[in-house]
């Protein structure tokens, strides 16, 4: 499903160059639920942005569902994000002031889907996350957990193959975080590939596999190995 080979990414701040990803190679299979962990600033979000086609690597290969991404145009990347990928962010990132329904409709607007179909599918997605009765509410009138559910509905609505979630529970209390994770697990059971960044072991425990990022390199790991590593969650 997701195949990164020898991927590098360097940021340039004036004269200084900051190598963030160094020859990363990794594979995530269809239907997997993978957690990415690692110290702050280690490059987790950078990696997620590349996997999510928001950003492109400086070098290396990236195959998403068999399609080579590295030479795609901005416009092609936008189409791939729209059709293959659903984003869930730490800070929910709902469009302020517009209703939950309109937020969930957005990816379908950009996909050019008919208004009636759009509305129907948006309501179904809200139903899946248990917020059908809040369709007309704006973000300001919802709790953090509810906002994140709307964001998940929005991520699901174009029926993408991959959900990219960068610290989806980072802004939620642990109880709400657990509920979101149950939702993720349910989606995963229904076949969605999920890649999620987290600092919390209890959250990572929901994943089937854990990738650890440190100094721009990615290694496979297990929760037992992480426990006791002091700099996580800093």
């Amino acid at each position: 499903m997701i195949l990164l080979q020898d991927v590098s990414k360097t940021y340039y701040l004036g004269e200084a160059s900051v190598p963030v990803l160094k020859h990363v190679t990794l594979q995530i299979k269809q239907g997997e639920f993978v957690a990415i962990m690692g110290p702050s600033g280690s490059g987790k979000s950078t990696l997620m942005n590349i996997i999510g086609c928001l950003d492109v690597a400086d070098s290396g290969r990236y195959l998403l569902a068999g399609t080579a991404i590295e030479h795609m145009t901005e416009s092609q990347l936008a189409t791939i994000r729209n059709r293959y990928i659903g984003f869930v962010f730490q800070s929910f990132n709902l469009i302020p002031r517009v209703s939950a329904l309109r937020n969930v409709e957005l990816p379908m607007i950009y996909a050019g889907i008919d208004p009636e179909v759009r509305r129907h599918r948006a309501l179904t997605a809200l139903q899946i996350v248990g917020l059908r009765d809040r369709a007309e509410h704006t973000g300001a009138r919802m709790s953090g957990g509810q906002q994140q559910r709307v964001a998940i509905a929005r991520a699901l609505v174009n029926n993408p193959q991959v959900i990219i979630a960068d610290e989806p529970t980072g802004a939620l209390d642990s109880h709400t975080g657990q509920e979101i994770m149950k939702l993720f697990q349910q989606l995963n059971t229904n076949g969605k590939t999920i890649v999620m960044v987290t600092h919390e072991n209890e959250i990572a425990a929901f994943a089937q596999r854990i990738l650890f990022v440190r100094d721009g390199m990615v290694t496979e790991t297990r929760l037992e190995h992480i426990t006791g590593k002091s700099n996580i969650g800093a």
């Binding site: 999510g52 928001l54 901005e74 416009s75 936008a78 189409t79 994000r81 729209n82 059709r83 984003f87 990132n93 469009i95 302020p96 957005l106 990816p107 950009y110 996909a111 929005r154 174009n158």
Partner: peptide
């Protein structure tokens, strides 16, 4: 700006 970023992440074209 952030909203524009969200829209682009959701697949908005130029």
């Amino acid at each position: 700006t952030r909203e524009i970023g969200i829209r682009k992440a959701l697949g908005a074209q130029y």
